[in-house]
Design a binder for these strands. Structure first.
Lengths: 294, 294
DNA sequence: GGTGGCGTTCGGAAATTCCGAACGGGCGTG
DNA sequence: CACGCCCGTTCGGAATTTCCGAACGCCACC
């Protein structure tokens, strides 16, 4: 009995989802079917691919080696289908306007390099919650959001009603900035306590950077509603307060000297690709997933 | 319904064997199963892969494109299995002593380059018919023989009792040689008629080079039994007659001037890999087949 | 016109895949 | 310590896929 692609597809899903149960959901199969396929594959190869633990399936060394092959084979099978069948794969990708102009081109470039046959239609949105609702409802195949932590919503926003699968595809560094003449500019080793009473420019309550600022700085500073990233940057340049902003949004201002970084490190956010785990067989979506992987 | 490797295996066999019927034999399946799998694959991809002709199956453009992918996927699937399962594949390869020292190292080098995990045990033999009988009986997975033409036995030897599949992997140039002082040495544009009455050194009646000489020169020359290639070369050097020998066996003698090539071209023989078409799933044999392909 | 070789269709058998229910093991919590 | 939850697995049976063998139609050749 030879190895078959559907077995590798199942195997890869189990590795990615880490449990038979979650992989079964993603594959629209019963857990017993997934378990049976993994067992059949192990018999076929004559090796154990997973260590069964109470928390789920952990790949063995052989499993790790097979994973490389499995992804390659599945990827090439899709490429073969695309070339032979000539069917374009199209994915609607939602992204906040903030990152639509910055990180999305990078993701698309990587995708174009690895999957020339896949068309991605970028759908800018203004609300993370709306984007995730669209993914859950099937109006988007995937979306890019900013988040942190091990679970979706780790940054503090509510988790979407539909359970979505996600993958961190990039880090989004943050910088705490102020006008060059600000009293804290130039001081070393700042802590959140140093910012108690400072004016902190923020976006609306659900804005990722505001949520990040809440986590990093706590309740000490005074929140000053400012609007989108460009507005916050501009107000910070004019000395109206400090702001926690994505590094890409302030790099040039800092280089030109109109802004100064404060010496208080903030953990980077994650650029997170989210999609419905039970719709991975949508043409092209898996391509996006493969392309997004490091 | 996604593409599966067993479908690609069937597809590749049909391309290689050119008919559903022969592919079915090779795969140990009924022709109707093969036909059904090809149809299912075509439905899955939404394209026609073959043009059905009375003489067999002819790949379409899409079929040609898929073939490249199919071979790649099947090859990588085997490599994946070899790496993950750690099971060495071993093939017993028969070869006449004549070519065991000359062409076989080249084939093995190519194999080592393309299939590091495959072990080939070379079994030298003295009789082509015995080698093919061993392949037919399963004592050898494959053998290298010298032949010509479109069918096995085209050189003139009897076809083996078991129908064997074959693949030409290299050309084996021939040279008609004589001692440097031979009257025909140096004359241009020789024809077989010029050799009427000449002494022609030959091996035993089933020797490939004798069969080749019979085809090239006809009955005109007088056959002088001489023995194996080295013996024929030596006698030719001593002016005891002309001989039709493999180029590799006379290159150095010609270069050192102890032999002269006569200006009568002889078509090259083919180094032909033979195996049982119904045992291609033997571990490692397909690797040898892929490696042998140009 | 008859024959042979080819691929395909068809009905049915065999094999594979899958489902849902039930189970056992391990872990976390009260 | 007992209970509940989550995990993977086993089991019997259903659904689907693959395969077989017989029969057929088409085409080329003699």
């Amino acid at each position: 009995m030879a190895v078959e692609l559907h077995q590798l597809r199942t195997f890869e899903a189990v590795v990615r989802h880490r449990t038979v149960t979650d992989a079964a959901v993603a594959l629209d199969r019963a857990p017993s079917s997934v378990s049976a396929q993994i067992r059949a594959l192990e018999r076929s190869l004559g090796v154990s691919l997973f260590e069964r633990t109470p928390a789920g399936m952990r790949p063995t060394g052989a499993g790790e080696r097979l994973l490389v092959w499995a992804r390659r084979l599945l990827d090439q099978a899709e490429q073969a289908r695309a070339e032979v069948a000539g069917r374009p794969r199209q994915v609607r990708l939602g992204a906040l306007e903030t990152i639509a102009a910055t990180y999305v081109p990078r993701v698309l470039a990587r995708l174009a390099e690895r999957r020339p046959g896949v068309e991605v239609e970028v759908r800018p949105g203004v609300s993370r919650d709306d984007l995730m609702a669209d993914v859950g409802a099937g109006r988007l195949e995937a979306a890019l959001v900013l988040d942190t932590g091990d679970a979706l919503g780790g940054l503090g926003f509510p988790a979407p009603p539909e359970p979505l699968t996600f993958l961190d595809v990039d880090a989004v560094p943050l910088a705490l900035v102020a006008a060059p003449g600000h009293p804290l500019a130039g001081r070393d080793g700042l802590t959140p306590a140093d910012l108690a009473g400072e004016r902190l420019l923020v976006g609306d309550p659900n804005c990722s950077f505001r949520l990040a600022a809440d986590r990093v700085l706590g309740p000490g500073p005074e929140r000053v509603p400012a609007g989108a990233v460009p507005v916050m940057r501009s107000w910070a340049e004019h000395g109206l307060g400090v702001a926690l902003l994505p590094e890409f949004g302030v790099t040039s201002a800092c280089e030109s000297g109109t802004l100064a970084r404060l010496d208080l490190p903030a953990p980077a956010l994650s650029l997170r690709l989210v999609w419905r785990g039970d719709r991975e067989d949508v043409p092209g979506l898996r391509d996006v997933l493969y392309a997004a992987c490091a």
